[in-house]
Design a protein around this nucleic acid. Structure first.
Length: 196
DNA sequence: TGTATGATCGCCT
DNA sequence: GGCGATCATACAG
């Protein structure tokens, strides 16, 4: 059994979640060979009132307190499966929510799972992405450097096109600009409004 | 283009 | 009993 590494696809998952969230933009994510390029993420941290890990470990968020570079999957609103990547060190409780992909691999599979043709709507949002990639609770805690996950490094130039803004769907710490996206992408869950 | 609402369930009050 | 790191649908304008 090889020692777990926090580095996958040039990303150091032992860094702060807002650093990892930014660096993940442009990375290609596949699950069982199905997926695409990450175009939208959000960072969460134990010290963050909006985070599931804010109240400390519980059965639901246990994976968030596990080793970095692993998956944390949770059920949203009782019916959607959402995928996160664990950051920092084991026991800290930080993670990055994967909110949207530009589909590149396994389009037919994703269309079948989603019951839709429009590529823009296959993975534009954490719940939609979870359904398109076939994510469920059985994926929580799995390492990102091993099957069924595959991550491929982004083009370095992608970092020049990253925009940030307030996170979506939260009621606490709403001012933290911890949502990151690929500027101008047509596959975002929602557009980034110009700052004002 | 925007706002309202039902679905559905684990966890906390 | 109420509330989410959501989404699809049903309206109003």
């Amino acid at each position: 059994m090889p020692a777990p590494s926090a580095v996958v696809a040039d990303i150091d998952f032992s860094a702060d979640s807002f650093v990892v969230a930014r660096q993940l933009i442009g990375v290609r994510l596949l699950v069982h060979g199905v997926g695409g390029t990450i175009v939208e993420t959000e960072a969460y941290d134990r010290t963050d009132p909006a985070s599931h890990s804010f109240g400390g470990p519980s059965p639901r968020n246990a994976a968030m307190f596990g080793p970095p570079a692993c998956a944390y999957v949770y059920r949203s609103y009782g019916l959607h499966w959402c995928l996160n990547f664990v950051c920092r060190e084991a026991g800290h409780g930080a993670g990055v929510l994967i909110r949207a992909l530009e589909p590149t691999d396994g389009l037919a599979t994703m269309r079948q799972r989603r019951g839709l043709d429009d590529a823009r709507l296959l993975c534009a949002g954490p719940g939609r992405l979870g359904q398109a990639l076939g994510i469920d609770l059985s994926y929580t805690g799995l390492r990102l450097d091993q099957p069924p996950f595959q991550l491929f490094a982004a083009e370095p130039s992608a970092q020049h096109s990253v925009v940030s803004g307030p996170r979506i769907g939260i009621s606490k710490a709403v001012e933290q600009p911890w949502r990151f996206g690929l500027a101008g992408s047509k596959f975002l869950s929602r557009p980034f409004r110009p700052r004002g």
